[in-house]
Computed example of a mutant assay.
Amino acid sequence: MAKQLTLQSPLDMHLHLRDGDMLKLVTPLTAEGFAGAVIMPNLVPPVDNLDKLLEYKERILGACEGHKFDPFMTLFFRQYTEQELANAKDHMIGIKLYPAGATTNSEAGVKAIDAVEPVFKMMEEMEIPLLVHGETHGFVMDREKEFLASYDYLASKFPKLKITMEHITTADAVAMLDRHENLRATVTLQHLIITLDDVAGGLLNPHLFCKPIAKRPEDREALLQAALEAHPKLMFGSDSAPHPLEKKESCGCAAGVFTAPLAIARLAQLFDKHEKLDNLQAFLSGNAQTQYGVTPPKKLVTVTKEPFTVPEAYTGFQQHVVPMHAGEELEWRISQID
């Protein structure tokens, strides 16, 4: 009999759904297997007020095709008033800070951390989590490492502010988890598997290019070990980021790896390879529920050790998106959802 594992309410704590036709294509691909996801707000224009947040959530729910799925909404960080935060608090899971220009659609982000301290103070007092894209504008391999000083500063100055280091990619960031009580982190599927060599060591693979970029083997190893051991402050966040084919296979390749449809099966394969399947539940849901205090819809997702071929692309609504592992055979697949 094939090996099986039933997961309870898997969660994706960092997800891009875009908008319009792309949202209609990719939302069901997450909502089918995941019980909930933290939705990124970097649309054009950004989701930076309560009306936009509620309207975006409605569009997401309308695209779920009947699947049990909770979108945990975020606001794009800006200079909010206390009243704005009070009005929005019960409708969001946190506020996402982007350094200006650090990644896709982040031009309206923060230019100086110390200039927005009043907002951090209000968030701390109101118990609103801060989610951070942690990169500087330095040399591309060092951007996350350079930003760690900002995490030290924020965690120390605002000790009751819950801070999530999003999509960490370095061994140094893993070490940060144990340095401050109010820090936690998400990590993607791709950063547990690939290094920069997979992206650009031979012919450039645009479908593995993302920001933060994949790093060195020793960084991947540190991330993988923390995930496999289900470090209590580390959560799965796919950072699944769909782009149309013409935006990926082009000059000026868009940053983002699309993993939503295969993430659960690929994680099962990875954890099985290292004989750590017993820890996958905590990494995929338990830690997130503890760290954020969320209660997702009840959903049982059974994965089975049976072959599954990843489609070459996902198409619909005049969109064409290539996933990670396109055309490859995985060892595990989702076999049942209840």
Rank of each mutant, 00 (worst) to 15 (best):
R59N: 13
L61K: 13
G62W: 11
C64N: 09
E65H: 10
E65S: 12
G66P: 10
G66S: 12
G66H: 10
H67E: 11
H67C: 12
D70K: 15
D70P: 01
F72E: 02
M73H: 12
M73S: 11
T74H: 03
F77A: 06
F77C: 04
F77P: 00
Y80N: 09
Y80E: 10
T81I: 06
E82V: 06
E84V: 05
N87D: 15
N87W: 09
K89R: 15
D90K: 15
H91Q: 10
M92E: 03
M92W: 01
G94K: 02
G94F: 00
I95E: 03
K96L: 13
P99G: 05
G101D: 05
G101I: 09
G101W: 04
G101Y: 08
T103Q: 08
T103G: 04
T103L: 12
T104R: 14
T104S: 15
N105I: 03
S106F: 05
E107P: 07
A108W: 03
G109K: 01
A112T: 11
I113W: 02
I113L: 14
D114E: 14
D114F: 11
D114Y: 09
A115L: 11
P118N: 09
V119S: 09
V119I: 14
V119Y: 01
F120I: 01
F120E: 01
K121L: 15
M123R: 00
E125R: 14
E125N: 15
M126N: 00
M126H: 00
E127Q: 15
I128M: 12
I128F: 11
L130T: 00
L131A: 12
V132W: 00
V132D: 02
H133D: 12
E135I: 06
E135G: 05
G138Q: 11
G138R: 10
F139V: 11
V140D: 13
V140S: 10
V140I: 12
M141N: 08
M141F: 13
M141K: 11
R143N: 03
K145W: 00
E146T: 09
F147I: 05
F147E: 02
A149Y: 11
A149W: 07
S150I: 11
Y151C: 04
Y151E: 02
Y151T: 01
D152Y: 05
Y153F: 13
S156G: 15
K157M: 09
K157G: 05
F158C: 10
F158D: 08
P159W: 04
P159V: 10
P159E: 11
K160M: 13
K160D: 13
L161P: 00
L161I: 04
T164D: 04
T164S: 15
M165G: 06
M165A: 12
M165V: 04
E166Q: 14
E166M: 15
E166V: 08
E166A: 07
E166W: 06
H167Y: 05
H167N: 06
I168A: 03
T170S: 14
A171E: 13
D172Q: 15
A173C: 13
A173D: 04
A173T: 10
V174F: 05
A175M: 07
A175L: 07
M176D: 05
L177T: 07
L177S: 07
D178L: 07
D178Y: 04
R179H: 14
L183V: 07
R184G: 06
V187R: 00
V187W: 00
L189F: 11
L189C: 08
Q190G: 03
Q190S: 13
